[in-house]
Simulated scan of single mutants.
Amino acid sequence: MKKSGKIIITIFLLIGLALGALAVPYIYNFFQSLTPKESNHVNVYVNSTIYSSLSSEIDQFEEDIITQGYTVDLLNWSSNNAITLKNHLLNTTQEQKGLLGAIFIGDIPYVNYKNGTEIFACDLFFMDLDGVWIDLDQADGYYDDHTPGSGDLLPEIWVSRINSESIGGINHLNAYKSYFARNHAYRTDNLNRPHSQLVYIDDDWSSWTSEWLGDMTAYTNITSVSTNINTTASDYIKRLNQTYEFVHLFVHSYYYEHVFGPNGDSSEGSVNYTQISNTYTKPLFYNLYACSACNYVAQDNIGTHYLFSNNTLAVVGSTKTGGMTMNSYFYNPLNQGKVMGESFRLWFNNPLHGPKDSSSQGMCLLGDGLLTISM
């Protein structure tokens, strides 16, 4: 055989091997079932680029967590590899102290999941530690299948994020400092609200008002607004000046704004991220049934603007279309005094909209997962 022929064959073999490697799916699997064990331990991961600048705030946060009755490891985190992060979470669960949950401060790794045509950040990846996560096409870098394997689909831990980096035109360090100042104020009873909830239901969900209200089991003092002619952008934004502890909103949305009116046609106005930042919002907690509102990787997503506005401490929402349904599975634990993160984890155990349901896969918790509502 001529030398040129050998070279051509070698090239084809190398190309074939490369294509074969791409065709083999990447599988993340612990190969062992994990049973969540009682733990009072949390890991706090702080991006290394902001750790030293927030040392006073982080030290106070650590002290507050210990005062609350938990043990904590503070981690000056520099890796941008999501697998490295997940392995660290997994390894902590195998230690005697176990792991209840984790708080990510600053720009901490995330993964994208692909379901049909939707690609979205998926924090369930870090919460379910014994399921199988499969990237069928390594060329795109998205996970696109989630199976039980020898474990299950349910989360063993919770995670929450405190990250201002997606907000444009602000001093991010000041945003973190303001957040941790009010976090400490809430923990020391210097920031509080009456035990009350606003449930604001726009047109396309108003016919199920009684069902939604039946799921709001953490509160008895509830203000419900669901009459179609009353649920408007201007009315909603005015109500954020009132001292509710918790707001649960049902409205059509994009990642950067809420749109009010039937079918999300914005005939009754819109509320964008700038309005949230420029309004003196008084509520402390939000649950946004608002498509993509908590897509925390998108520039100026409205969920992050809620979190860093004035008095907010935590926001529940989705990085994709959908939002939280069967809400009693979230509010019942809150009503029992469980922390926000654990209530969020337990919500995934609901029978109809658990981790395999597409509307649940983008659910995330922004803020401090160790907070509780007033009782």
Rank of each mutant, 00 (worst) to 15 (best):
Y179Q: 07
K86I: 06
H184N: 10
N183G: 05
K2H: 11
N310R: 02
K338S: 14
I229E: 15
N350A: 09
F250R: 10
I170W: 00
K6N: 10
Y219E: 12
A181D: 11
L136M: 15
I27C: 01
S270W: 15
S210T: 11
D300Y: 00
G369F: 08
A139M: 06
I11Q: 10
V199P: 12
E118Q: 01
I66C: 01
S52M: 07
T227H: 09
M127T: 14
D128G: 02
L153E: 08
T231I: 00
Y256H: 11
T84S: 13
Q197C: 13
I276K: 06
L213V: 15
V111G: 01
F30G: 07
F30M: 10
L13P: 01
G5H: 08
T220C: 05
Q275W: 06
G269S: 10
F12A: 02
S33I: 12
K338I: 12
G264I: 05
S360V: 04
T67I: 02
L249S: 14
L85M: 10
S328L: 13
G151M: 09
M340W: 01
L313V: 11
E342Q: 09
V42I: 12
T71A: 03
Y26V: 13
T49L: 11
T319D: 03
L288N: 09
P355T: 13
Y113K: 14
P283T: 09
A293D: 04
K282I: 04
G116R: 03
S207T: 13
Y110A: 03
I229S: 15
N272P: 04
K177G: 12
N287Y: 15
S234M: 07
T243A: 12
G69D: 04
Y28L: 08
Y306F: 15
Q94H: 15
G106M: 01
I58W: 09
S343Y: 11
L198Y: 07
F125I: 03
F250Y: 11
T84W: 12
D300I: 00
G101V: 01
G341D: 02
Q242M: 07
Y296K: 05
N311V: 09
E156H: 05
K238I: 13
V72W: 05
A233S: 08
I119K: 08
K338Y: 00
L191P: 02
R239C: 00
A293N: 06
G303H: 05
E257N: 02
T92L: 11
F330Q: 06
S4W: 13
Y256M: 00
I276N: 06
K6F: 13
S358Q: 06
F61M: 08
Y219L: 13
